[in-house]
Nucleic acid binder design. Structure first.
Lengths: 223, 223
DNA sequence: ATTAATTTTTAGATTAATCTAAAAATTTAA
DNA sequence: TTAAATTTTTAGATTAATCTAAAAATTAAT
């Protein structure tokens, strides 16, 4: 403790956390370079630094994984990111496709007092505008089980609870076709060839969705 | 344009602006080093960089002053700082003595959309929690009633608080003769025939101004 | 199981921001 | 008006984060 992370270090920790969500294998140097839009050589260097600070586990040529303190840091950053997104959408009237970039900056503001007061001000929300869960002050994440719309079969019903990524083009498109969190959705037909779907939405009726879209939409598993 | 300032550059510009608010002379290298908690040699280097970017006027051994674009940047930063302070105090229940450091971070968030929406959300406040005026979206600070420089008489003193119009040619000319907002000005002589003036400015000493220019410059009325 | 392809690391430079120490210019004072 | 004191600048290094090019290790393929 004592030493707070640089902006760059925070971005590495966050990227490792996000790539690592399927932790069967360690996060590779190239994957990190891709995610951070930098070069593998740069990643190699930074990895050594983070390893030295015991934020990650690292063995040459074997990739990296977050340590306990690394995970804690990652969750703090993600908590801030998502809380700020709630603020931007709920109080400053931004659309869900406009907040990611601004939150990328706000997530690095250092003050736990600020984060916790913001949390209270917002009413301690549990999900952000894209349906992603917001870790609490202790880093605990509350996520109900979900599956991808693309994994559903004909005649299945479910509630839209999230969007897998924050690409503004995707979000704007979903806006345009009136898809948003909380809607009930029913798969009416699945096309075997390209996995495109016809789905039934409350007021809109039946619309067509490509696999590129259905693979980004999260549906509550139980309900 | 196109070039956005680094965090360090922003801090220099802001420091120059703030030291310059009591401007009898240009801002000295040592004063900046003090204010920024750094060494004079470092300041010397950075000064060259900012001068090269035309954000400040600089002559070796003569200190620095902000250019028009430098002042504009400073006001943007100060606007953000003060608006965030209002947010922290009015909505997150911070005390007025707790917000400076957090606002020092928040002032560097880059999104004019964000600042303007925040401004609206806060109800377009004109002063921050410490009573300092908040510049509006165009960088104008509301310092109470003002009059035109051209309406002043001999020996009157005042503070320059604005320029009546945004004609680039006028503003470029004012830059060139080092006239900028915040300066104290004293009318030393008025020419009855054409209303031209001689005025005394902090560092520059006495300069001559035509009525075409004095009729564009706003001076604080009371003070 | 070698060879080929890919991934990862090292080596050596570069840029921004900083420092210390020394030189140069300006200001103050005797 | 010279000399002393102060301020400012230059010169040369340092650190963090980055890059390119080349070497080393791992993985995949014939």
């Amino acid at each position: 403790m004592g030493n707070s992370l640089s902006l760059t270090e925070e971005n590495y920790i966050k990227a490792i956390f996000q790539i690592g969500t399927t932790p069967e294998s360690n996060v590779s140097t190239n994957a990190l370079a891709d995610s951070l839009q930098t070069k593998p050589a740069t990643v190699s260097d930074m990895i050594k630094k983070l390893s030295h600070k015991k934020l990650i586990f690292y063995e040459k040529y074997k990739g990296v994984a977050l340590s306990a303190s690394g995970s804690k840091e990652a969750l703090k950053i993600i908590r801030k990111h998502r809380l700020w997104e709630v603020f931007l959408v709920n109080h400053l009237n931004f659309k869900w496709d406009q907040v990611h970039e601004i939150a990328e900056q706000l997530e690095h503001i250092k003050s736990s007092e600020l984060v916790n007061r913001l949390d209270d001000f917002l009413g301690n929300p549990t999900i952000d505008p894209h349906g992603d869960p917001i870790p609490d002050a202790k880093g605990r994440v509350q996520l109900g089980p979900s599956k991808l719309l693309s994994e559903m079969t004909s005649h299945e019903k479910g509630i839209i609870v999230g969007v897998k990524n924050e690409d503004p083009l995707l979000l704007q498109h979903l806006d345009k076709i009136n898809i948003r969190l909380g809607l009930q959705i029913e798969v009416t037909e699945v096309n075997d060839f390209d996995q495109s779907m016809q789905v039934n939405l409350p007021d809109l009726g039946i619309i067509f969705l490509s696999e590129k879209i259905t693979s980004q939409i999260l549906i509550a598993k139980n309900s």
